[in-house]
């Protein structure tokens, strides 16, 4: 399968800095924010975003991580289970402006699960969605608030966001039949 690089480390860093500014502008600062990363790769991205927000505004921003496995709508296959990871939300999200962070937005089903999980934990003032890549093909009425890169794709292609903390490199690639050179 051929693969093609869509973003390198510098592209990703600049993109995250841009959406950090957008988040500050939209929320008029960072005072009420809580950044929550979705397992697995949303978590390191959430930490990076939080430290960018802190350095821009000089105010600490709480970070949490969310595992949505128990809220998935596809837990059907017998004998094969997605591995559970811990949810760790160190603060009360009641009344907070929650920024959910994920690497790739695709069908929207993971985001749907994350919204259900979040609402079981408290009642945020609002929830906004930040993603590294929006690749389209939504199956639910969900849209992102902050996007680093929009990538029109075919369903036969695969978009992978690689993160230093998980994969040893910062990179966004696209793989599949439709990719040339």
């Amino acid at each position: 399968m051929r693969e093609k690089e869509l973003m390198n480390e510098a592209d990703m860093r600049r993109g995250l800095t841009r959406i950090a500014h957008e988040i500050i502008e939209r929320n008029q600062g960072v005072q009420e924010l809580a950044i929550i990363g979705m397992r697995t790769r949303g978590v390191p991205l959430a930490h990076r975003l939080a430290s960018l927000l802190e350095s821009l505004e000089g105010h600490p921003v709480p970070v949490g991580s969310l595992d949505v496995t128990l809220y998935r709508d596809d837990l059907k296959l017998r004998g094969v289970r997605p591995r559970l990871q811990r949810t760790h939300i160190p603060i009360d999200i009641q009344g907070k402006r929650v920024i959910l962070v994920d690497d790739v937005l695709y069908t929207g089903r993971t985001t749907r699960a994350a919204l259900d999980a979040l609402i079981d934990l408290g009642r945020p003032k609002c929830v906004q969605l930040a993603v590294m890549v929006d690749r389209g093909h939504r199956e639910l009425p969900i849209r992102p608030d902050y996007v680093v890169k929009n990538v029109p794709t075919s369903v036969h292609e695969e978009v992978k966001v690689r993160i230093q903390e998980v994969d040893g490199v910062d990179q966004v690639i696209i793989m599949g039949r439709g990719v040339d050179g």
Binding site: R41, T69, V80, R83, Q85
Partner: peptide
């Protein structure tokens, strides 16, 4: 949306 799409490793 099946096992192939799960981002977390499976057991």
């Amino acid at each position: 949306i099946s096992v192939a799409d799960l981002t977390a490793p499976t057991e």
